[in-house]
Amino acid sequence: MNIIEIKELHKIYDESEVKVHAVNNISLNFEKGEFAAIVGPSGSGKTTLLNMLGGLDKPTDGNILIDNTNLHKLRSSELIRFRMMNIGFVFQAYNLIPVLTAKENVEFIMHLQNKNKKEREERTMSLLKAVGLEGRENSRPSKLSGGQQQRVAVARALASKPKFVLADEPTANLDSKSTEQLLSIMEELNKQEHITFIFSTHDQRVVNKARRVITIEDGKVISDIRKDVESDSK
């Protein structure tokens, strides 16, 4: 069942004299529970596509339907709420709130969702346990390593029980060991929670773990490989 449908998506930047066609007629579908990587060289349009998918940027043309909701037809306030309820984000630089502890960072979105204390506590502790940070819940980000911070970020992204998680270069700042740990955790959570993960990455280790690899160049999809069915739907 498709939870994301991208139809003939275009993004043109024309702020400078030269128009840049960052995303050029991309159509893709994602099913529930996918573990997909979008790869491509720098400037290929991966991040632009991910931003539009997350409702952070507007397409010049085309539509993105998430569970039949046209993302870019939503009003600004509706879009913010939609993101809060349906999309989890993992950023390259972790982007945790430095004044909050690991536990508070994870709880934060549930506060925004007005979840009750019991529900927040249970979900937070279970996620921190899942990402291997049991016992570090009261540490602030500055007291955690990069890998640990990114694991908190993954727990935070999943806290709101989103339909899918967008991870933009999540391993770019991590060493090999931390990358391996993080990928294993995300893979495990993907299986446990059945939440779709979509990565934008350069990292071959992420590509190796992904069950679907979409390659983009010059704003176009040049390959879309599903490893489990070994098919190429280019």
Binding site: R83, M84, M85, F89, N95, P98, F108, Q113
Partner: peptide, 16 residues
């Protein structure tokens, strides 16, 4: 800026 961008991205309303 980065943190404020993150807050808005993850669903914190402008009013909040």
């Amino acid at each position: 800026i980065k943190e404020i961008g993150m807050l808005m991205a993850v669903g914190m309303s402008k009013l909040r």
